[in-house]
């Protein structure tokens, strides 16, 4: 029996649509084989990659993955950490020892470090089969958000927000001068001058609307150019991967002069934190 592809590359396909016929093709992401046919599992764009048929979803929920950087909101304070909302059906755990470098005394009020409602940029360290999530803030580029605005976009559109090697996000940063962090869960931090934040937000909404079309970077550049005029390449604010630091009451990060120093020193406070937590734990048992 002859094999053939029944859809065009980059065409919109719906669940159950036949993508290819025959055994010469292989089912890739978001597709399945039924008999001779390869069918789509989701609404998305068909992707023909050699013999592999894939579908890139156009909408849908965020699925937490280890090492994803996300922006999450603190929703509860627990015995030895915080519960944070991740924009999925599942909330995540942020442990004290993963939240701050400094020593946390036994019985200390954790709301002095992170208050309910605070946003944090965190990284997922562990996801279980039941989607229980652990996150950490103890890496460079992870911090508590103290200023700026947080907006939400569809998580499937995050790759377009970032662009190839960060081209899109770099573009918006360059033209607006805002610091930006894009969480893989579709939550975006924009931090800068209020008008420029507004502009960056507009650009993001544009990307969201036209995410399934190509030539988007040029389009966004034209839009930004028409508002703020030409901005030379070199004007990009350097080293802003890590926007404003945790200069909050509870955190001592700002006292560290540089990132490597923070990392080298990370061990000592961690042990202290451990002890504090253990003490708390034993107290709980009593």
């Amino acid at each position: 029996m002859s094999s053939e592809i029944t859809v065009e590359h980059r065409a919109v396909v719906i669940p159950g649509q036949v993508l290819a016929q025959g055994m010469d093709y292989l089912p890739g992401e978001e597709t399945y084989r039924e008999g001779e046919q390869i069918r789509s599992k989701v609404l998305g764009l068909a992707n023909v990659n050699g013999r592999v048929m894939k579908v890139t979803p156009l909408s849908g929920p965020y699925i937490p993955k280890v090492d994803d950087v996300i922006i999450a909101q603190v929703s509860d304070i627990l015995m030895s950490g915080w519960r944070v909302q991740t924009g999925t059906p599942y909330s995540a755990m942020l442990n004290v020892r993963d939240a701050t470098q400094r020593f946390v005394r036994k019985g200390e009020d954790l709301s002095r470090i992170l208050e309910i409602g605070d946003y944090v940029v965190g990284k997922i360290t562990n996801v279980t089969s039941q989607n229980l999530i652990d996150i950490t803030m103890k890496e460079p580029g992870l911090f508590k958000i103290n200023s700026g605005r947080v907006i939400q976009v569809a998580p499937q559109k995050v790759p377009r927000m970032i662009g190839k090697r960060g081209s899109m996000i770099g573009l918006i940063k360059r033209y607006t001068g805002c610091k930006m962090v894009v969480g893989q869960n579709g939550t975006i931090l924009i931090d800068g001058n209020a008008e420029r934040e507004e502009l960056a937000q507009k650009a993001i909404r544009m990307i969201e609307e036209f995410a399934h079309q190509s030539g988007l970077t040029e389009r966004i550049e034209d839009f930004l150019k028409s508002v703020v005029g030409e901005v030379p390449e070199t004007a990009a604010p350097s080293g802003d991967r890590r926007p404003r630091d945790n200069r909050s009451r509870g955190s001592d990060d700002s006292s560290k002069p540089s990132k490597p120093f923070v990392q080298r020193n990370a061990d000592t406070p961690t042990e202290n934190t451990d002890k504090a937590v253990d003490e708390k734990g034993s107290e709980e048992k009593k």
Binding site: E8, H9, R10, A11, V12, I14, Q17, L43, L45, A46, N47, K54, T56, L58, V69, V158, P159, R160, I162, G163, K164, R165, G166, I169, V182, Q184, F210, H212, Q213, S214, G215, R241
Partner: peptide, 25 residues
């Protein structure tokens, strides 16, 4: 149903090959 869902994304499916998984930050 199919037409309705396709109409949701006008202008798709016409373009050159774009790598879907663009490199992240």
């Amino acid at each position: 149903q199919q037409d309705a869902l396709e109409a949701r994304f006008p202008g798709a499916g016409t373009d050159k090959k774009v790598d879907a998984k663009e490199v992240s930050q």
